[in-house]
Structure formats: C-alpha cells, structure tokens
C-alpha cells in the first residue's frame, strides 16, 4: 500500500476554494459582488459562480463522495483539485503540498504520479489499443516500453479483463471501456484517485457491477478516492463521507447515516426522502435513551450497526434491546423503533 507520505494529516486539504467563471473573476471575488446569490451575480456582471468558498479535508484511504445535481458545481470542484480548471481563490493541498502554488512543471509531475482521474465518457484514445491507453500515463512520464507494458498488463488483470487488452476502445461496451478507464487511472499508482461521474453513462446493471468493482479495488489497493456523482444511492453505497453541493456551495458534509438521519436543510431532506432508511441509518439514529426498562440480559447491539442488519435480533426479542458503544450502554431499541423506520419508508415508497 502506498500511504507513504508523512503519515498523519489529511490526504487532501481544501480551504476557501472559489471559482468564478468569466474574464474578471479575480476582480469580482475581491468586491462585495461576490456575496450576491448566483443568479443576481450573473445578471449584474455576466460572471457565473462555479464554486463558492468550499473547504473540506479528505483522510488518507477515505472514499469521499461529492454529490449534487447537474449545475451544482461538483465537476468543476474535482477539476479545481488538479487545476484542470484554475481556481479563482483558495488553496488545495495534497499531502501537505500546495497544488495551487505549484509551477507548471511540479503540476505536471503531480498529475503524472500522484493523482489520477476517471471520466464519465472514459476519455480513452480511440487510435490506441486499450493496453496502450492504460500505459499512456506511464508513457508521458517517460517510462520505457517494456516496463509500461508489464505494468499495463498487471492493471488489465486487476480489473479482470485479461484477453481484451488488444482491442480498440470502440470495440468494447461502455462498462468494459470504463474498467479500462479505471485500469488507466490505477496504472500510474497514484495516491489519490478522482472519479468524475464515472458510471453515469452506463446502464443500471453494469453500474452496480462497477460500483462493486470500485469497492473491491478500494479494499485491495486502498487508495484515497474522491468520487463525484449525482446519484444519491451510489453516494451512500460508496462513500465514507458525503459532501452535498448546491449552486457551488457546500450544503452538508457527513457520513451516509448523518446525511439521511440529520439532513442539514429541506434540500437535503427532499433528496434523501426516497432513500431506504433502514439500509443506511444506524441504530444510533433510532434508539431511545435508556429508561430502565431494558433487561440486563437483553441482546446487545452496537450503535453503528445498520438498522436493517439489527432488525432480526430486535424483532425476535420480546422487549427492548441494549445498544452499546465501546461497552457502554448508550440507548435502547424495541420493535416499534425498528418498525417506525421500515414502515415510514414503505409509506413514502
């Protein structure tokens, strides 16, 4: 595994990041206009706010999902992180290195070795065989043909497409192309992988396959991942933490159960209303304070257990169960607490 860089500290540190599209973005950000809502700013100056004052940290090895509807600025955000789009203001640090202050050479080096990206429309080169596509990143950083072929072949095996390496991209289905997109991103052995809606163009079954593939690869190679999506269920499935964006601003950052259990505002609540809550929420969100009715020999459940997984135990036991965290009793749940979650979601469905 490759978390070699100065152990502690976040993998990615983003602070006060802004992007205002238009010729005079850097002037507007210093004026009072920057505080105007998106629409008014556009009417007044013709400039569009892409990202407004965004800050967050991503821990090493974390899967960090950025979620929002189209136009919310999530694709802009991921491009600002490697300066595929130049930020108007703010700071991005990758393992303590300030990307926003880098000169062109250092930036190229970062893109070649530390960050890789997977794109919605794959971005494979149509005139090269997929194996040469995978090796492209190694080629631009000047590795020899033999070495990069070997490495690329390893990656082909890793994503489970051995035998297809001599195809051209347009001979493959979208799902396979995107597996090769993944392989290309992994080939450079980067510290951070960025995904820009990688599965939006795929049909639902393939999408599920690919999500599982990402989970598997994450387990195997343990990279830090920044994952952009507009699909909440994808976000909940993959994310350790989720950042929800609207109009270029952060609405909420939290673990999946926090986002569903304690939506920051109506926007997020509306978003999460159709989520099967029992699949996401942990007991923490449904338990009551201990009131002395719990039996000492009642089954013990953990507070971070998903409701669905705990349901069987609670329903089988007659009376409230104990919910503990680190051996301490933190709450109790009974049949009704469980059913409330399950029934509520039946009603909304």
């Amino acid at each position: 595994m490759t978390q070699t860089q100065n152990g502690s500290g976040p993998a990615l540190h983003v602070e006060g990041l802004w992007k205002i599209f238009g010729p005079n973005g850097d002037k507007i950000i210093k004026s009072a206009d920057a505080q105007l809502p998106r629409k008014e700013l556009q009417e007044k100056t013709g400039h569009v706010v892409g990202i407004r004052d965004v800050s967050f940290d991503v821990a090493p090895g974390e899967v960090f999902v950025v979620m929002g509807l189209s136009g919310s600025g999530k694709s802009t955000l991921v491009r600002l992180l490697t300066r595929l789009i130049e930020p108007t203001a703010g700071k991005v640090e990758l393992y303590g290195e300030d990307i926003t202050a880098m000169n062109d050479k250092a930036l190229l080096e970062t893109r070649r070795t530390k960050v890789s990206m997977v794109f919605q429309h794959f971005g494979l080169l149509p005139h090269r065989k997929v194996i040469d596509n995978i090796a492209f990143g190694l080629e631009v950083r000047g590795e020899g043909r033999g070495a990069r072929r070997n490495r690329a072949q390893e990656m082909v095996d890793l994503v489970g497409l051995s035998g297809y390496e001599n195809n051209y991209p347009d001979q493959l289905s979208g799902g396979k192309q995107q597996r090769f997109g993944l392989a290309r991103a992994l080939a450079a052995d980067p510290e951070v992988l960025m995904f820009d809606e990688p599965f939006s163009a795929l049909d639902p079954l393939i999408r599920r396959d690919m999500q599982n593939e990402v989970i598997r690869l994450h387990k195997e190679v343990g990279k830090t991942m920044v994952f952009i999506t507009h699909d909440l269920s994808e976000a909940l499935k993959l994310g350790d933490r989720i950042l929800i964006m609207r109009d270029g601003e952060i609405v909420q950052i939290g673990a999946p159960d926090e986002v569903v259990g304690a939506p920051a505002d109506d926007y997020v609540r509306d978003f999460t209303s159709e989520v099967p809550k029992s699949h996401v929420l942990t007991l923490k969100w449904v338990m009551r304070d201990p009131d002395g009715t719990e039996a000492t020999d009642a089954p013990v459940l953990q507070a971070d257990q998903i409701v669905r997984d705990a349901a069987r135990v609670v329903l089988d036991y007659d009376g409230p169960c104990r919910v503990e965290r680190g051996g301490d009793l933190v709450g109790i749940v009974d049949d009704e607490d469980i059913l409330r979650v399950v029934v509520a979601e039946e009603a909304s469905a």
Binding site: L84, L108, E109, R112, M117, F119, L124, P126, V140
Partner: peptide, 14 residues
Amino acid sequence: SPTTVEAARASGST
C-alpha cells in the same frame, strides 16, 4: 473529443 484531451491533460501530458 474534449474528454480525451482532458483525460490526457489529467495524466500530465505536456
């Protein structure tokens, strides 16, 4: 295709 160009840029092409 702009996606391809962007992908190559993200790979660190000069």
